[in-house]
Design a binder for these strands. Sequence first.
DNA 1: CGAATTAGTGGGTCGGCACCCACTATAGGG
DNA 2: CCCTATAGTGGGTGCCGACCCACTAATTCG
Lengths: 158, 158
Amino acid sequence: MASVKPQPAAELPPSLLDLSTYLLSRIGKAARSRLAERLAERGLRLWDMAVLAALADFGPQAQRDLVRRLAIDPSDLAKVADQLAAAGYVVRVRDQADRRRVSVSVTDAGRALLAELDAQARAVQDEVLAPLDPGERRALQELLLRVHRGTGEWRGGL
Amino acid sequence: MASVKPQPAAELPPSLLDLSTYLLSRIGKAARSRLAERLAERGLRLWDMAVLAALADFGPQAQRDLVRRLAIDPSDLAKVADQLAAAGYVVRVRDQADRRRVSVSVTDAGRALLAELDAQARAVQDEVLAPLDPGERRALQELLLRVHRGTGEWRGGL
DNA sequence: CGAATTAGTGGGTCGGCACCCACTATAGGG
DNA sequence: CCCTATAGTGGGTGCCGACCCACTAATTCG
């Protein structure tokens, strides 16, 4: 062969790149999977982080509330909570007022873990948003937040 | 209970909303799945659209090139191409110069389809970006494009 | 006290996506 | 001509996220 090409990479179709939703989807997916990778190294998944964050932000609450807040399936939450409890990141106690309920709260270990996870998330974010300067990042965050709020009634998902 | 509450929906944890990558991921996912839904009504998937777009943008080419360009698995592409060919949206002909190759090109039907799909994609985009005015949308597109380019060496995915 | 309701759990399905391997056909250099 | 590399195909696997159902325990209402 004439010469072995590394053949860097071909361009994507302009008609796709022209769609903000395409970029959103692609970038979002990349960011998500990068973070997921890092969490996986610790045997964690994205939901674990989301649950910890919800507990840290809003304090102890019943699984029921987490279900509503995070739009996670009750059954799936049970599994996540199981795992987190087993690892000592949260504690589950029967609510004495209504003993059907299980009140979940973060432990100190959980809070410490969350801090680390958050640092990792920010590290990923720095990688992904590398081409933007601080001002642009703020502008992006602002736009995204508006979009997110605007479409208030979204269902589900992490 | 004081009053029966419709309890519209609870807020998400601020510590997550504060991460641009979280928003990116969530919004991107929503956009992607909305479009996927619409495509599914026609029995199509996102890859079908991507392949059509690549063919329309860059003209007829071997599957090999599509594989490189779209970072799709060769085997998966074969299946997508099969389906598109069966439906008459593309034609596959053996390259006479190198008969290992199969050159793929869009048909008129394919182009017409792509136009419709693109319209659907833009409709979804309008829904998602509803809170932003045209200027802001352009700003967003610009930022996303920079981010996308910056992270040149991304692997895979739709 | 039932009967109906709610919280949580355990077990499973389903579809999509990425990935991998074995195999055929063709090309091209030594 | 042989040997290796490349193009494409077919038939898988494994993972993951979303979802669903059946079941228990506890509560509340009539």
